[in-house]
């Protein structure tokens, strides 16, 4: 568990009464959640329960049907595109697929968000920023490689580095360990904790990997059928006789 200090008086993300449907399919059915400053919260749930939809609403890629999502004090659904961009600059989004630009090498991938958002930046400063984030994810030697030459774990790391280059206050991780072997998953878990310590971020981690949730999150929120079944510390949430929660726990820890 991380040693980071959490300020429970200040919410960086505050969600209340959130609904989202796609056609007849109701995905989120009344979600309430607070992410406090400096805190890591893991959202756990089965595949297809709307975990990714939740963070896509937070970042403004999807619009909610009903409810309020306040991110850093602003209601993202009501922001104009320029205001939304200002909020997005303060949020890092790590995609499940890493979403690296496959026509660019690692350096260009990392420099791209910086040069596009910060005007008149000298090449030296861009190089320094790129090397700093590459050091943070431990992949300094991959500077000139293309994304197709990287392993799954390395792609995840570069994806995280690309978000770190803009020094975000909030990190949103979409399935950070999915598709990775246990050792690489452990490295990503360590990286998530290092990012929280070094960059002083608050994070929402979408996962169905209990090991990841247990080792990165201050609190976990169990999403079942569009609603949070339970929110709290890891041991509190799984100290239960609820069949769904026990099933989730038993599968992950092979009991």
């Amino acid at each position: 568990m991380t040693q980071h200090t959490v300020n429970r008086n200040e919410s960086v993300i505050s969600i209340s009464g959130l609904y989202k449907s796609f056609g007849d399919l109701e995905v989120l059915k009344g979600i309430d959640l607070n992410l406090f400053k400096g805190e890591n919260v893991a959202v756990l749930g089965k595949s297809g329960t709307g975990k990714s939809v939740l963070i896509k609403i937070i970042i403004g890629l999807l619009k909610p049907d009903k409810g309020e999502v306040l991110v850093l004090g602003s209601n993202v659904a009501e922001l104009r595109s320029k205001e939304l961009d200002q909020i997005r600059l303060r949020i890092g989004f790590s995609f499940q697929s890493s979403a690296l630009y496959d026509s660019m090498n690692v350096y260009q991938n990392l420099a791209f968000p910086l040069t596009m958002n910060v005007k008149n930046l000298s090449k030296g400063k861009v190089d320094d920023a790129v090397m700093e984030v590459l050091d943070a994810v431990g992949l300094r030697d991959k500077l000139k490689q293309m994304p197709s030459d990287l392993s799954g774990g390395q792609r995840k790391r570069i994806g995280i580095a690309r978000t770190l280059i803009l020094k975000p206050e909030i990190m949103l991780y979409d399935e950070p360990t999915s598709g990775l072997d246990p050792l690489t998953s452990t490295e990503i878990i360590e990286l998530i904790n290092e990012v929280q310590q070094k960059y002083n971020t608050s994070s929402l981690i979408i996962t169905h990997d209990l090991t990841c949730a247990k080792n990165t999150a201050n609190r976990i929120a169990m999403l079942f059928e569009g609603k949070f079944l339970k929110i709290g510390k890891f041991d509190e949430v799984f100290d239960t006789d609820d069949d769904q929660l026990r099933g989730f726990y038993n599968y992950n820890f092979i009991q």
Binding site: S97, L100, D102, M116, T163
Partner: peptide, 25 residues
């Protein structure tokens, strides 16, 4: 094909969340 593959591999979304207008770029 290029934009299609960028779309389905979420590269266009990645631009958008980095505050870069993918339509413009």
């Amino acid at each position: 094909a290029e934009l299609g593959s960028m779309k389905v591999t979420e590269q266009i979304d990645a631009m958008e969340v980095s505050a870069i207008n993918p339509f413009k770029y």
